[in-house]
Structures are given as structure tokens and as C-alpha cells.
Amino acid sequence: MPKAKETVLEIDLKALEHNYHFLKSKLKPNTKFLAVVKAFAYGSDSATVAKKLQDLDVDYFAVAYVNEGVVLRDSGITKPILVLHPQPVNFKTLIERCLEPSLYNAKILKEFIAVADAENQTNYPVHIKFNTGLNRLGFWESDTDYISEHLKATKAVKAISVFSHLAASEDLTEIDFTKTQIKNFTAIADDLSSKLGHTLWRHLCNTSGVLNYPEAHFDMVRCGIGLYGFGNAPEYNTELKPIATLKSVISQIHKIEPEESVGYNRAYTSNGYEKTATIPIGHADGISRQFGLEKGAVFIQGKSAPIIGNVCMDMIMVNVTGIDCTEGDEVIVFNANHTASEFASTANTISYEILTAISQRVKRTFLH
């Protein structure tokens, strides 16, 4: 891999391909694979990642918001795109760009039918979201009569799938809760399909659901974090390859004396004669202040260098006492060996937050 000359997020598309094939190998041949590429493809680059997955013949994509789907269409993505959390103000754009909405409550259902009808649509594909325990978005199981009445009364839209979201599929202490979700979802899907008079695709599993609950793969699965290299369990993390490497360089080295302070609010005071390195990455780039005060660390010449003092907007300072390094040397924030999950754990957070927080001002480069 090329050495960094500036702060850069390096995306390994070969690792992405490996993760896709690993996850797909867990499915039955007829189970569709939906790739979740919301939030800039978990902080990487949604257009480039989606193009790679489209080349690998993924079946579907999902984004959170309509504008994310528009970016994919503008980038040449032709596969179906599910919008998980559409807002009514964007319904017309959604239809113009051939995106498919998740309809999750009565207001959204009625407003989308009205827009689709005004746009002279026939059988526009929609996905019906049910809440089975996450308590975030979704119709209740008692809403199937209401949904079926409204859908059967219009020719503008047609439900093609019914889905829900597992709340704790990665937590093996919550197996009973997850199995109850699966059971309830199955009953809801049966009920709605019966009332509509046609078969609906069913999809429930996220990455951890794919790995831990094969009985719930149904007609399609939705994989996000697994594609980017994390399986939420040690045994699966070894099978997956993190696709992102965040690295930077040393801008300046300081030699400081005992009792000297470093950074804003003098948050760090040296214990003796020490050496510090300043690195051009800060909380405006996604390295939040919670990693300061020696909680987080970076790697220089293969050695851990703790972040000292408060994280600045554009810079961090690290303790490189005892590390043979010089200005211009490469700095690893996270990579396949020192993962984003490990980095996140030092500040009591998760890989999802670290990956998606990487600012768009950080340059993206691509391998393979």
C-alpha cells in the first residue's frame, strides 16, 4: 500500500468483494442480497462502493434518504434502490429517480399514494415496514387491515415487500427476544400477504441476522456493516476484511520539558522530557474529543502513540517518546490490523460511529 503524504481514507475494493462473497455464501441461492450504502457507504464512498457491488451483481441497494439515492442514480447505479426513511417533501423526486420507498406509518402511506396518483403512476413498487420490537419506525401488527384497504383501493402503488428490523441480532444473550421478533414478523407477513391477495418478499436480517439466524433469511437480506469488514463477533471478524484504512502523517515533532503543557486548556502536562508529534486530523475529520486525554491512540512505526491533551478541530497531538520517528512519517489511525472497532472501543463506542464520522474533507483513495 502506498505511504500516506496527507490525511487519507484508503478504500480496499478487493476486501469489499471478499466480504460480499463471504456473506453471500451464507445464503440460499434464491435469497436476494441488498447492500446498505447509506451514510456515504458507512463513511467510505457510496458511488464507488455501489458501482463495485453492482459489478458483482448485487440485487438491491438501500439508503436512508432520497438525496442519497439520487447520488447513486447520478453515478450510474441502475439496480433497485430502497429508501429506508423517506420524507414526503421528497416523494416526487423519489418517483422521478425510480427509487423505492419504505412506507412505515399511516401518514407516509397516504401521502405517498396521493403523490404517486398525481404523478400518474401504476403499481409503483413500495415496501411496507413493520415494528416488531426495535420501536423506531414501522406499522404495528394491528395495522394490516388499514394497510390492505388503502393499497387495494389504489392502482398507483403496489406493495412488493414486507420487512422489519432486528433489534439485537448480534447479542447472543437476546436470542429469545430475536426469535420472538422472527415469529411475529412471519405472522405479520402471512397476514398482510393474505389480505392483499399476492405474495410479498420478506426481509428481516441485517449482517448479524445473516450470520446468526439462517432460518430468518427469507427472500432477501440487508447487509451493511459486514460489507465494510465487521461481523460484530470475534469469529466473524476474522472472516471479514475491513475495507477502510485511515492514515495521516506527522506534521511536526516537539521536544518538551518536564511540567510543560500540551494543547487547549493545558489538558496534558508532561511527566518528564518527552517527544510529541502533531498530526493533521481532528474532530472536524471525525476524531472526536472523546479520544483525547490518552484514551485513543494511533500507530507510528508499528508502535502505539496515545493522543494527549484535547483533540483540536484540525489536529491531534500524540506522545511519541521512545518511538523512532520523524516529520513526514506515516501515521495509522485504523486499518485491517488495528481496526476501527478496536479504536472505537477505547472511547466506549462502536465501529459504525467511527466509520460514518469520517469527514468528507478527508481525501478518499481506492485500491484495486
Rank of each mutant, 00 (worst) to 15 (best):
T278F: 12
I256T: 09
N271L: 10
P258M: 07
I281D: 11
E274A: 11
Y264M: 13
G282D: 05
T278I: 13
S261F: 08
A267H: 01
P258T: 04
I279A: 04
Y268A: 08
A284I: 04
A267G: 02
K275Y: 05
D285S: 14
Y273G: 02
S270I: 04
E260M: 14
Y273C: 01
Y268H: 09
Y268Q: 04
P258D: 08
A277K: 05
G282L: 08
E274K: 09
E274S: 11
E260P: 00
I281N: 11
A267W: 00
N271F: 02
N271V: 02
G272H: 04
T276G: 04
I281R: 07
R266P: 00
T278H: 10
A267S: 14
H283F: 14
A277S: 11
E257N: 10
A277V: 05
N271H: 06
E260F: 08
Y268R: 02
V262A: 06
I256Y: 11
I256A: 14
A277C: 09
V262I: 15
Y264N: 13
D285M: 03
E260D: 14
E257Y: 07
S261Q: 07
Y268D: 08
V262W: 06
N265E: 14
G263M: 11
E259A: 15
Y273V: 07
P258N: 09
P258L: 08
R266F: 01
N265M: 14
G272F: 05
Y264W: 02
P280V: 13
Y264P: 00
I279V: 12
P258W: 05
S270Q: 03
K275G: 00
P258C: 10
N265C: 01
Y264L: 14
P280R: 11
Y264E: 15
I281G: 10
P258I: 03
N265P: 00
T278W: 07
E259Y: 12
D285H: 13
G263R: 02
E259W: 06
N271M: 01
G272Y: 04
S270A: 14
A284H: 12
E257K: 08
T278E: 11
G263N: 09
I279Q: 05
P280E: 13
P258G: 05
T276K: 03
I279L: 03
P258F: 07
A267N: 10
R266S: 14
S261D: 02
T278V: 15
T278P: 00
D285L: 07
D285C: 04
R266A: 15
S261Y: 08
T278Y: 06
N271W: 00
Y273N: 12
G263A: 08
E257R: 05
Y268L: 10
Y264I: 11
Y264R: 13
